[in-house]
């Protein structure tokens, strides 16, 4: 009995010292990488590529990709926001963190997360069916200001729907929205010529555009993209500076110990800027735009302000 109790207290001491020493010998176990979407999407695929590259920079410890879909990413985001802030739970952060905390009744907001690194930016593009009657941006804008143009979105309240709403309001355009359940269905409608135009990410549009199935009219970014150098920016054609896009980054629960945060940020930088990772991402059609934790935080704040201005639009339309 006495021996049992003493061994129990030894175990307790060991446990206590382990949690104290945690920051110093981070990482000492595998890390959960929570993807708040079902498997198969861009966030999931890029997440798995990060997990593949991670062990080298994390002393051989693995990233375990956990898909936690549900509630438009709310389920996974809630899970991470309430997970222990010890650096062993990471979140694949997308613009839905901002949308959800602003528009839905959720238990977290942007400050519940520690942004660690941004690895991919995908500007918004306006596309039309290759079979359609809108050959360029001018024709598109003219059509939408005189009558209404049908617009396919991957879903109500998605970032692409919000982009279209914002543009329509700024430029006085008239859109009829055709909401789908996925980006795949949106693409199918565009290719089949059932809708006139659509809003999507450049990354998704480049492939089908190369095949000649859809046409990219303009990219909503400050400069042309290397992925589609022939496509003009929105500003080039119209003179109005319109920028919109989605991002993919990595975050952790708020309140990380400083050493752990620094450790994570620098190790993630090593992973995300390694030539092998960049090459692999490029092969899969993604460009790596690395930003460190401070720059990522700044970017998030900017996007949140932008989003706050647009949200009343979304609420008024329904």
């Amino acid at each position: 009995m006495i021996r049992l109790r003493s061994s129990f207290s030894v175990a307790l001491v060991m446990l206590a010292s382990a949690s104290l020493a945690q920051a110093a010998d981070y990482p000492n176990k595998n890390i959960d990488y929570v993807v708040p979407f079902a498997s198969g999407g861009a966030v999931d695929i890029t997440g798995r590529m990060i997990a593949e590259a991670a062990p080298e920079a994390f002393d051989g410890k693995k990233f375990i990709v956990k898909n936690m879909p549900g509630g438009g990413a709310v389920v996974g985001q809630t899970y991470v926001s309430s997970a222990p802030a010890d650096g062993y739970t990471l979140l694949a952060m997308t613009s839905s963190v901002i949308n959800n905390s602003l528009m839905k009744d959720v238990s977290y907001d942007l400050d519940s997360f520690t942004p660690l690194a941004l690895y991919n930016l995908d500007p918004e593009v306006i596309v039309t069916s290759a079979k359609g009657d809108l050959p360029d941006l001018e024709a598109f804008l003219a059509a939408a200001s005189h009558g209404s143009v049908s617009i396919a979105t991957p879903g109500n309240s998605t970032s692409h729907h919000i982009a279209a709403l914002a543009l329509a309001q700024q430029q006085g355009l008239d859109f009829r929205y055709v909401h789908n359940a996925s980006a795949a269905m949106q693409l199918q409608q565009l290719m089949g010529g059932h809708v006139q135009a659509g809003f999507m990410s450049l990354g998704e549009a480049v492939g089908p555009a190369k095949d000649g199935n859809i046409r990219i009219l303009a990219v909503m970014d400050q400069a042309r993209s290397d992925l589609a150098p022939d496509v003009p920016t929105y500003q080039e054609v119209t003179g109005d500076d319109v920028q919109w896009g989605t991002f993919r980054g990595i975050g952790a629960p708020a309140g990380l110990p400083d050493e752990v945060e620094a450790e994570l940020a620098s190790r993630l930088q090593k992973v995300l800027t390694s030539p092998e990772f960049i090459e692999r991402m490029a092969a899969a059609g993604y460009k790596v735009d690395y930003r460190d934790d401070a720059a990522f935080r700044q970017y998030l704040d900017k996007t949140a302000t932008q989003m706050e201005q647009v949200i009343p639009l979304l609420e008024s339309q329904s």
Binding site: A38, I45, Q188, G207, K210, A284
Partner: peptide
Amino acid sequence: SLGIPGNSTSALFLGALLIQGLRPGPG
């Protein structure tokens, strides 16, 4: 033939193709 995944399982297949640096579609 088009690069459009028909269901969740073929969306994973799309991922596998992309990871290998292959882009599905007419090309």
